[in-house]
Design a binder for these strands. Structure first.
Length: 216
DNA sequence: CACATGATCGCCT
DNA sequence: GGCGATCATGTGG
């Protein structure tokens, strides 16, 4: 299996010069839906050969653990692949889907809780193609994230980190999650969050807020 | 060991 | 809207 680890050149950033800073561990230990919302507008970044590459997150989904039929940790399933989900908030969980794409998740809550936020889409600097990272598989491909990154601690001073910048908060829309029709009742839960003003959101950004919300 | 299936995407009609 | 690529993983024998 070949995995391209080279990030798209147009994603080049300079965290310090752009006023980006890392959130503390407590940021990731909060309730998963809270983290999923808070990550909208934050940056996912990767250091490659001494340079930083990154993009602003515009779409996320919450996977809330053993009670969530759409989550890999449903019913407490604990295998080698899912193991990173059981770590403390702030770790990374990456898996392969459909034999060719990767999905990157940021683990939330405490060690053992097995909850996480899927990064579904991001937007790069202006000189990037507008839809370069508009989907979980595309996001990982553009940043060069692979399953070998699964289990890394985003707060460990490593090559993968989350940054955020002080300032205006994005308008956030909510809807059911994408691609989890097999999950029964959980498929309808409003656990997808997206930046209402971004053109990089995957699929359609129709908000379901205001209509009947499921549990959680 | 065998086999069914995805937390997707791009191309097709 | 539909379909196929492509393979690690999970489950069952």
């Amino acid at each position: 299996m070949i995995a391209n680890r080279t990030p798209a050149p147009c994603l080049r950033i300079d965290p310090a010069a752009q006023g980006l800073s890392e959130p503390p561990r407590a940021f990731f230990r909060r309730e998963t839906t809270t983290v999923a919302r808070a990550l909208i507008g934050a940056w996912i970044a990767r250091r490659w050969r001494g340079r930083w590459y990154g993009a602003r997150i515009v779409e996320t989904e919450a996977y809330i653990g053993p009670t969530d039929a759409a989550a890999h940790s449903w019913k407490g399933r604990r295998t080698a692949r899912v193991e990173p989900m059981y770590r403390e908030g702030g770790h990374l969980y990456v898996f392969l889907v459909y034999g060719m794409y990767r999905c990157a998740n940021i683990v939330t809550r405490r060690e053992g809780d097995a909850q996480a936020v899927l990064l579904r889409a991001a937007e790069g600097p202006e000189d990037c193609a507008p839809r370069l990272l508009s989907g979980p598989g595309k996001l990982c491909a553009a940043l060069g994230i692979t399953v070998s990154d699964s289990g890394l601690d985003l707060l460990g001073g490593g090559a993968l980190r989350v940054f955020r910048r002080r300032g205006k908060k994005p308008r956030i829309g909510v809807s059911p999650r994408i691609g989890v029709d097999y999950a029964g009742e959980a498929a309808g839960w409003p656990l997808r969050f997206f930046d209402l003003d971004s053109a990089a959101v995957s699929g359609r950004n129709r908000s379901v807020v205001g209509s009947r919300m499921g549990s959680r």
